[in-house]
């Protein structure tokens, strides 16, 4: 049986298998069709219906279940929904167990949330360091703001204030007003 306890392990393995079988396009389709439109249809419906309050309901619940020791922080206002991951539960699982079958596991988050939020009318500013730390800001498409200065939205819980947050931009994957996992800034 495929279990949920080590889900992140076989999920990550699946990305590598799909890429070998059908190339990058099949991986992208998997994130959008299987995860966004099927597995996470409850999140999709909630956020399309309620916007930022729906994001709070979805991520508030799911992150607490996946990361009961609170390796994350959620901040929200009427205009922006922000998550800071200080200890990503799924990337952390892979790192602790030495699992790597796909070149960038972190891409899967933008792979399914990007299209999901795009369908709900939102865009994403995001950076991840591949080591279990990242941040996300979600705003209505066409509104100002984005890549808010460190600490200005999440205060001291902004992951970019960590001493180990990379100073070298080349060590970060960075997105601006994005909905596409391949829209990384150069």
């Amino acid at each position: 049986m495929i279990g949920c306890y080590d889900f992140c392990g076989h999920y990550e393995w699946t990305f590598g298998w799909l890429e070998r079988v059908g190339g990058h396009a099949l991986v992208r389709d998997y994130w959008n069709e299987a995860i966004n439109h099927d597995s996470q249809s409850h999140a999709r419906d909630l956020i399309r219906r309620e916007g930022i309050p729906g994001m709070l309901k979805y991520w508030g619940h799911t992150l607490l279940e996946e990361s009961p020791d609170l390796g994350f922080n959620i901040t929200h206002t009427a205009d922006v929904f922000r998550i800071d991951f200080h200890d990503c539960p799924s990337r952390g699982f892979l790192r602790r167990n030495g699992l790597k079958h796909y070149h960038d596991y972190c891409d899967h988050c933008m792979g399914w949330t990007g299209p999901m939020l795009g369908e709900a009318g939102y865009v994403i500013d995001h950076e991840h360091n591949h080591l279990g730390q990242c941040w996300w800001e979600m705003r209505k498409a066409g509104t100002p703001g984005g890549h808010a200065p460190a600490g200005s939205v999440a205060g001291p819980k902004d992951v970019r204030l960590r001493p180990d947050w990379p100073k070298d931009p080349a060590k970060l994957d960075r997105y601006t007003k994005a909905n596409d996992p391949d829209a990384k800034m150069p």
Partner: peptide, 21 residues
């Protein structure tokens, strides 16, 4: 178990992803 997590049980919503996969 060859791969262990910091919590004793997994998150059941991941079964949705297995079914969707």
């Amino acid at each position: 178990l060859p791969h262990v997590d910091t919590k004793p049980q997994g998150s059941a919503d991941f079964y949705y992803a297995v079914n969707a996969t």
